[in-house]
Amino acid sequence: MTLIMSKIRIVTDSTADLSQELVERYQIEMVPLTVTINGTSYKDKVDITNETFYQLMQSSEELPTTSQITPAEFAEVYQRIAQEGTEHIISIHLASDLSGTYQSSVLAANMVQDTIAVHNIDSRNATIGMGLIVLSAAKMVESGMALEEILERLQEIVAKTELYFLLDSLDNLHKGGRIGKASQLVGSLLNIKPILCLKDGVISAYEKVRGNKGNKAQERLIDILIEKIDPDKEVYCVIGYCDNLEYSQHIQERLEGKINCSEFVYLQIGSVVGTHIGMGANGMAFYQL
């Protein structure tokens, strides 16, 4: 069987947290970051599955570490794709505010500029928020839309994508140094489940919900989504989970009929972002045009 290669290909990194199925379906090149746990390094989603990673994380005393993709790694990928007859690459990456991965992709694009045209997109988001953007790009490519129009639309989608997520605790985010404006919550004596928002590359503490069991916070997250989503406009969304798929399904159940959404996509939040937000995180990314 011969694959019909599109003239436009999408490259992203493993923090988009796309499933293997989606990667194959849209011929997306998902370059892995490296995650190190208990002294061993793994290529994200290549050498280690999300499930194994979360099992290791639970038993590990130390926080895992992650490292960004180097320009050389990106350049190699770009060159390989160029040889497959691709004319344009749209390379979408983890928010430049949170990681150097986007910067690496820009450097790599310069390195290969004589070979292939790479259009770098800073997703200003992460995990399922970025996954949603990548997926939208892939669908536009598949529909045969012109490159310029795709790039223009992506600008709008990036600007409008919001990710609301609920954490079990702020510990990992704090230890990993990615806490940003949510830092005011660290050190509270009370049990607090933070609901955070990631938009335009900035993580902010959207709301705090008291309690340790977290049911209250889970319902509150859904209430916030209902408040934020305009029911009269079509919404594109991805629901994300680490180890709690059941709650994700509950999100869908409660949203159905309240928002105008034709497809609920589920993605598992992977090891890199999981390292920073901890187990038990859940959320939803969406945009409305």
Partner: peptide, 24 residues
């Protein structure tokens, strides 16, 4: 008072904060 602080955003606007805190 404790409940109101759940909606407090130290980087936010004073009026928006006051409103959100009064709701919370």
């Amino acid at each position: 008072g404790i409940a109101s602080l759940m909606a407090y955003d130290a980087d936010g606007d004073v009026d928006e904060n006051a409103e959100a805190m009064a709701d919370a």
